[in-house]
Amino acid sequence: MRVSGGEGCCLRQSRMISTLPDPCILTARDLACRRNERSLFTGLSFAVSGGSGLALTGPNGVGKTSLLRVLAGLLRAEAGTVSIAPALPDLDLPQRSVFVSSRDPLKGALTVRELLAGWQAIVFAGEGGSVDGALQAFDLAALAGVPCAYLSSGQRRRVSLARLKLSSSANRPVWLLDEPTNALDAAARSRLAAVVGDHLAAGGMVVAATHDPLGWPDLAALDLGAHVAGRQAKAALA
């Protein structure tokens, strides 16, 4: 059985302003994923085009995070392919997206500025983002000198998200966000919405796993609950 979940997200092409040279498109074809002998989803196909986004919903354990990890190139899919067009030479799938997982990769002993400067030099070298810009975008300037160990969970989340502003949309047009608004207050949510809005306006793409309504523009929905492998098998038996 083959289900296509993304008709809605292909409709909207990139908007007027586009800093990306070519319109980008993220395509997933016939994805299947298995974790610990348990099949999560099968036959999942969708496409997200530049300037639009996709909200992944579904009950806990349905495979939202696994799908994001597959899209990020960090988890091997059991079947199917993921591609981001146009392809860039010597950049593989993990280098084409920014994946913000639900874990915050913060080091307690480093200050916020040191941590972001480290990410910029080690992970996002030469992509043109600035640490100050990232601090400003998530209202972290006042916390720049604070060791990460002293941050609250909402502040940790903001630091974690700040890496989005260190990346270049040309190299990494796809943003993969796992529960991005967890622990964020109203002000931080609207800052995140603004950052995502800028990215979409520049022709980027966003795939976000969420339980809350995000309120971002140009977001199609994909309910992973409809693609659960077990449910399909049961339906076939019945």
Binding site: A72, P94, S101, R103, P105, K107, V123, R163
Partner: peptide
């Protein structure tokens, strides 16, 4: 330590 807090994912996504 890096595998637990997700830094490893970040390192895998880098150019190095």
């Amino acid at each position: 330590a890096d595998a637990e807090d997700g830094t490893l994912d970040l390192l895998k996504a880098g150019r190095l």
